[in-house]
């Protein structure tokens, strides 16, 4: 939230269910196509397992399941967004990811009491750009175990 008053946000926009979300680019390492995931037993249901990301074993979270949405079979559009937070690198499975946007600081608003279906605690704010509504994710909360 503090960042919103300072400058424009550069974000990666992605789609989950019918809504658009955004993650600050400085957290995003890469965007990968779907690939074989090795299940890791005994982990939370939304942890799908690990992948071999160019030699680094990277855990993968299904964001739909993380938010409690009904799981969907993965398709052509499905992407894994590799994000980094502090010393963690994690992949997030999203329905589609295809946009890099500059969000003007003034377009960002604090999260309303209840927005869409994602619990407000994962949300850092919302942004209105033209006629799109983007939900800014709070990555620390998403990765909180």
């Amino acid at each position: 939230m503090t960042a919103s008053v300072q400058a424009d946000w550069k974000v990666i926009a992605f789609r989950l269910k019918e809504e658009e979300y955004a993650l600050a680019v400085q957290h995003v390492r890469s965007i990968e196509k779907m690939q074989p995931i090795t299940r890791v037993p005994g982990t939370a249901h939304y942890v799908k397992g690990v992948i071999n990301l160019r030699g680094v074993v990277t855990p993968i979270i299904d964001l739909r399941e993380r938010f409690g949405f009904a799981p969907e079979p993965y398709g052509e559009q499905t992407r894994i967004i590799i994000v980094a937070l502090e010393d963690m690198e994690v992949g997030l499975i999203v329905d589609a990811a295809n946009d890099v946007l500059d969000l003007p600081a003034e377009s960002i608003e604090p999260p309303p009491e209840a927005i869409g279906s994602v619990e407000a605690s994962y949300i850092d704010g919302v942004a209105k750009v033209e006629n799109r509504l983007l939900i800014l994710l709070d990555l620390a909360k998403v990765l909180d175990r």
């Binding site: 890791v40 037993p41 005994g42 982990t43 942890v47 690990v50 680094v56 074993v57 990277t58 855990p59 010393d87 963690m88 690198e89 994690v90 990765l143 175990r145």
Partner: peptide
Amino acid sequence: LKSLGNYLSSVFAI
């Protein structure tokens, strides 16, 4: 041998 990453720090029997 590789680690599972910091996100999955302790997994039972792995």
